[in-house]
Amino acid sequence: MSLVRIDRVSFGYAGGRPVLEDVSLEIGPGDTVGLVGESGSGKTTLLRLLLGLARPDRGKIFFDGTPLDPGNRSFMRDFRRKAQIVFQDPYSSLDPRQNVSAIIAEPLRSLRIAGDHAGMISDALEAVGLDPNVAGRYPHQFSGGQRQRIAIARAIVAGPKLLLADEAVSALDLTTRVRIVDLMSKLSRNMSLLFVSHDIGVVAALCRSIVILESGRVVEAGDTAAVLADPQHPYTQRLLGSVPRLVFEEH
């Protein structure tokens, strides 16, 4: 059974063009899925629906076989524990007035997860490649890449089954980006990953399957290598053709 099943979901704002139209998508346990789209594709809206922060106008989203219902409190508590998100901007995703320990502990405290919180926090810090001794420091004392690691530590501390990433490496420098992609790749061995990005190169490096979203519709989906090697939809072709490569005369 799939971990997430998005079944013909549509969403729109009153009076506006629909943001999402008839979108279907499945994420199995251990899957790594790249959701690629440009601005206005509806990729951020799809994430909000998937997180239960908004409800689709039509269609349903299932998590672990159960319909995702923001009104169902006991389901949501379990769901919040199992699905966590990492954002694009590591400067706005960490509360500047909380120290690292408090930031990472938030899901543990809010979801009333029992156990040795301090131990879980240092495990999470170690898993993202940070020294557990930094727990007492504040976000402004870290670089962008380190902040993103802290945000990832918060996302994995409660042991989620699904990790969502919203352009999680787009704001990072190239060399930092490689390291965070490596980290997410390592983490994705233990959980499913939905990686939302406009950057096809990063998606190609990280995700086994790919979904191309254009103006609220899925135009192409499948195995990443297959789609990139032989794109069928004209939009996918144009998108791939637009990505600049490092080409030299030796080629």
Binding site: R177, A204, A205, L228, R245
Partner: peptide, 10 residues
């Protein structure tokens, strides 16, 4: 190396 890695992945 970083740029080539994403290039190669594509």
């Amino acid at each position: 190396a970083a740029a080539k890695r994403f290039d190669a992945a594509m």
